[in-house]
Nucleic acid binder design. Sequence first.
DNA 1: GATATATGGTACCACGTGGTACCAAGTCAA
DNA 2: TTGACTTGGTACCACGTGGTACCATATATC
Lengths: 211, 211
Amino acid sequence: MSPRTKPREEEADGAAVRKRILGAAMAAFMEGGYAQTSTLEIATRARVSKRELYSLFGNKEAMLVACITERAQRLKAPADLPELRDRETLANVLTAFGTKLLTETTDPVVVAVFRLAISETVHAPKVAQALESIARKPTRDSLCAIMAKARSAGLCDGDPAVMTEQFLGLLWRDLMTGLLLQAADRPSDGEIARRAREATTGFLSIYPKPR
Amino acid sequence: MSPRTKPREEEADGAAVRKRILGAAMAAFMEGGYAQTSTLEIATRARVSKRELYSLFGNKEAMLVACITERAQRLKAPADLPELRDRETLANVLTAFGTKLLTETTDPVVVAVFRLAISETVHAPKVAQALESIARKPTRDSLCAIMAKARSAGLCDGDPAVMTEQFLGLLWRDLMTGLLLQAADRPSDGEIARRAREATTGFLSIYPKPR
DNA sequence: GATATATGGTACCACGTGGTACCAAGTCAA
DNA sequence: TTGACTTGGTACCACGTGGTACCATATATC
C-alpha cells in the first residue's frame, strides 16, 4: 500500500511529507492505540526522522489531533438539499443518506478514529470535541434540514430534531458500539442497504403522511 | 465520599479489601484512564500496599478486567417474563424495560466502563468480550424473549431479533456515543422516561397489531 | 520476653518513551 | 575543492512505571 517508489519530487515537499506522517500515525494508532505507539514507530513507518516529525507537529498529542481532524473532515455530509416532491422521493433520499452514512462511518479507519477519540475523551476533550463538531453535528444538521424540508412540504409531521434522531437510531441500532467493542463485523454493502431500507420504512411508519 | 472511619473489622477481610481495591481502581481509571493510572495510585486510594494489591490481582490488566466484569454483572437484565395479554401491556413492559435500561446504563460509572473497554479493545479484547457477554448480550436476549412472546401472543409480527434491535435503536438513538465523547450530558429521569415512551410508541407504529 | 508470621511502607530495578542534541553525510553555490 | 546549510539517523537524557524485594513493625503463640 505504501508508495515503494521514491520519485524524489521536490515540489509539494512539506505537504507530501506531512501527509505521509499522518498516514503512518493513523495506521500505527489504529493497530496499537495511542499510548502504546511510540513516536519512533511513527517516524520509522513514515520513513522520516523524529526530528522532522517534531518540527512539523510539535508533540505527540498534536499528531493525534491532526489525524482525527483530517480523517473526520472527509465525513462531512454533502450540503445538497434535493427536491422533495412526494413520500417516495423522501424515502429514496433517506435510504440514500443512510446508505452513504453507514458506508462511510463503518469504515475500519473511521471506527478506529472514534475509538481513539473516546479513549482520549477524558484527557484530551479537544479531540472528542473536534470529532463532534467536524463530523457528527454536520451529519445531524444535514439530515435535520432534510426533515424540515419534508415537513414543510407536507410529507410528514413532527419535530425535525426528534425525527432526525429517530431515523439515525433506526439506522444505527447498536452497530457502532458493537464495532467499537469489536463485537460486530463491518456490515457488507448488502447489509448496509438493507439497514437503510428498513430504517426508512420504519421511520415512515412512525411518521405517516399527515391529514 | 471515602469512608473516613476505620472500624477495623476482622471478619470479611479478604473480600472487603478486594472490594475496596476494586472501588479505588474503578474511580482512578474513570478519572485518569487506564494507561495514566499507576498501580501506586490505586494502592494509595485503597489504603493498601502495592504488595497486597499484586498478591490479590497479579497484574494491572487483571485489575481492569475485574473492575469491568464486576460492574457489568450488575447490569444483567432481570429474567422475569411478564404476562403479555394485550398491546397496552406490551407497551408498558417495553417502556419499563427502556426506562430501566437507560437509567442503569447512562450512569457515569457505566459509561466509563464502556469507555475503558473500548479503549483497550485492540490490546485486550478479553475486556470488550467480557462486557459484551456479561452485559450487552443478556440485555438483548432478555428483550428478544419479550418480543418473541409478544409475537406468539399475536400482538405484533416480525423477526424478534430485528424488532429488538429496532427498539433499542429508537431508545438509544445516538445517546451512547454522545456520552462516550462527552458531547451529551446524562439525561434526567424525565428525559429518560420520555425517550422510553417515544421509543415504545414509535416501535408500536412500526409493528401494528396484525390482522 | 522470645520467636515466628503477617503486613504496611517503600526503595529499587529494569525498561520503555517523549523529546532534544549532536554528528555525519549529502546538497548547493561559487 | 571548499564552505555553508540542510537533513537523516540515532545516542542520550530525564522521567515515570510495573513489578519485586526488603525491612521494620505489629500481632500471635508459647
